[in-house]
């Protein structure tokens, strides 16, 4: 359940970005989680529901986009999307591959709320 500390790191980073932009709150955060990142999107969602309690982010929407694994094969040169939990080439079954996508664990975009009062006098 390292998702909880990951959710907490995300919230800390989001808080820093909110403060930097002097925003009044955060409407939503878009995250990318690769299927090989070792992070379970459902566990992460649950972690957010706990971690945001009694914070400024209780109403923030956490959008978790799953990024499928894609591997480039060093044997046949093809790029394929493995359907199992471990990365192998779907074309020739080789395990000598480089992971192209799937390890992502990223904050993609943040939708900040700017208090309108500040925008017009």
């Amino acid at each position: 359940m390292h998702e909880l500390s990951i959710a907490q790191s995300i919230i800390e980073r989001v808080e820093a970005i909110r403060a930097e932009h002097e925003a009044s709150g955060i409407a939503s955060v878009q995250l990318q989680v690769g299927t090989l990142s070792g992070v379970d999107p459902y566990a992460l969602e649950l972690a957010f529901s706990v971690a945001v309690e009694r914070t400024l982010y209780a109403d923030t929407r956490w959008d978790i986009e799953s990024v499928v694994a894609r591997v480039k094969c060093r044997t046949c040169g093809r790029t394929t999307a493995p359907d199992g939990p471990f990365p192998i080439c779907m074309n020739c079954d080789s395990t000598d591959i480089a992971i192209v996508t799937g390890r992502e664990l990223m904050i993609d975009t943040i939708e900040v709320k700017q208090d309108e009062e500040k925008n017009h006098v």
């Binding site: 995300i10 975009t109 943040i110 939708e111 709320k113 700017q114 208090d115 925008n119």
Partner: peptide, 12 residues
């Protein structure tokens, strides 16, 4: 509030 989308693209 007005909402502004910021592109972060940062590793967690």
């Amino acid at each position: 509030d007005e909402k502004v989308v910021l592109s972060v693209r940062e590793k967690v």
